[in-house]
């Protein structure tokens, strides 16, 4: 419980800092901190595999990419926060209302499955939890994803495909003006052939 509050409070604070940080590099760093904390929460839930994946994917890939982008774009620091106070009242009210919305949910409970009028006393049931051999997260996931829910898996693979295509389409220019690296040609180039002596000096 203590761990939970620690992780979640740090995550909340650092996510606020992501927005409020003046330097984009700082905000990306806070972002990474958020990820760390959430993966901690996941570990607390017993989802060890997901926690690892979270770290690997988000921190290892995405956040680093963000860092690269931020550093390459070289955004000016002062630009961002000029109109913070202007939007604060309306935004604050809306935020409060939104929080209230969430608050309504908090003290609710899992709803009962169909209320039946049948007497359930005579039913004997087996506790499946005893029969199931305990699987790890990974095993369960694999078992479900590759058998029962393989369609979903395929669809998500399609999503990845689309993402890939999209990235390529939007970035790769096929026109002649763009300078592009051609690795094979670069490797094949011989120094002697590149520089030619045109005439004797």
């Amino acid at each position: 419980m203590i761990l939970f509050s620690v992780f979640s409070s740090i995550a909340l604070v650092s996510s606020v800092m992501v927005i409020r940080a003046k330097n984009p590099v700082h905000s990306v760093l806070f972002f990474i901190l958020v990820f760390f904390n959430t993966s901690g929460l996941l570990v607390l839930l017993g989802l060890d595999f997901f926690a690892m994946i979270f770290l690997v994917v988000y921190v290892g890939a995405i956040a680093v990419l963000f860092l690269f982008v931020v550093m390459m774009l070289n955004i000016k620091i002062a630009e961002i926060h000029e109109n913070v106070l202007r939007y604060l009242p309306v935004g604050g009210i809306i935020g409060v209302i939104f929080l209230l919305e969430i608050f309504f949910i908090v003290d609710n409970d899992y709803i009962p499955i169909l209320p039946t009028k049948l007497s359930t006393t005579y039913l004997t049931y087996t506790v499946y939890a005893e029969k199931i051999q305990s699987w790890t997260n990974l095993e369960t996931l694999g078992n479900l994803l590759y058998t029962t829910y393989f369609v979903l898996f395929l669809v998500s693979s399609l999503i990845l495909l689309v993402a890939m295509i999209g990235a390529i389409v939007l970035t790769m220019h096929k026109t002649t003006q763009v300078k592009r690296q051609d690795v094979f040609r670069q490797n094949a180039i011989d120094f002697k052939n590149t520089i030619k002596k045109i005439r004797d000096i």
């Binding site: 939007y87 309306v90 935004g91 809306i94 209302i97 939104f98 919305e101």
Partner: peptide, 12 residues
Amino acid sequence: LFGLIFGMIILL
């Protein structure tokens, strides 16, 4: 985005 949330609250 603001409008989006605002609309959501109206709907609520």
